[in-house]
Simulated scan of single mutants.
Amino acid sequence: MSAVDEVLAKARAGLSRVAANDVARLPDDHLLVDIRPLHDRVTDGEIPGAVPIERIVLEWRLDPAGDHRIDGFTEDTTVVVVCNEGYASSLAARDLRALGLPKATDLVDGFHGYREAGLPVREGGTPAIT
């Protein structure tokens, strides 16, 4: 097992990852966060309701006690992070848990798995929160 595979396995050990077909069953107060780059969102589309936040500022925008956090969530909110294939999102969810978001998790197989499941996708290009 490579070092990155080991780090990923440890990150996922603490997560209750969300399958694509379970996105519609998330609690009403959930926050779906898309960390994919703009060019991926433009090319592939976006999950309706997802909030695009650049990965480089994710922790600052979702720190429940931070001065630069976005509105609309608390430390009790289920936060589901989405990347392209479900790898970077697992590491991001781990980091959000360390910040005080115990319900942070990610989407299994990422956006590509969601789209391949035939679930709704909207045209992409929403500017990310930076």
Rank of each mutant, 00 (worst) to 15 (best):
V121K: 04
R12L: 12
D22Y: 00
G86N: 00
A20T: 13
V42H: 03
D95E: 11
T78D: 14
H39C: 01
D40W: 07
A104M: 09
D5G: 13
K103A: 05
Y87L: 08
T43E: 11
W60K: 13
F111C: 04
A11T: 01
E123A: 14
W60Q: 14
V108R: 13
D34E: 01
K10Y: 05
L119G: 06
L31Y: 02
L62N: 13
A128G: 15
V108H: 10
D22C: 02
L38P: 00
L8N: 07
A65P: 00
D44K: 04
P27D: 10
D76I: 02
D40T: 09
V33A: 04
G118D: 12
V7N: 14
I47R: 12
T77V: 12
R25D: 14
T74A: 04
V18R: 01
V51F: 04
V57E: 03
R115G: 00
A24Y: 02
D44A: 11
A92H: 06
V81S: 08
G100D: 11
S2H: 13
R97T: 07
A9N: 03
A24H: 03
A128S: 15
D29S: 14
G66W: 02
K103N: 10
L107K: 03
A92N: 04
L119Y: 05
L58C: 09
D67L: 06
D28L: 11
A88K: 09
G14E: 14
H112I: 12
D76H: 15
H68G: 00
A50V: 11
S90I: 08
A11E: 06
W60R: 14
S90W: 02
V33N: 07
V33H: 06
V81I: 15
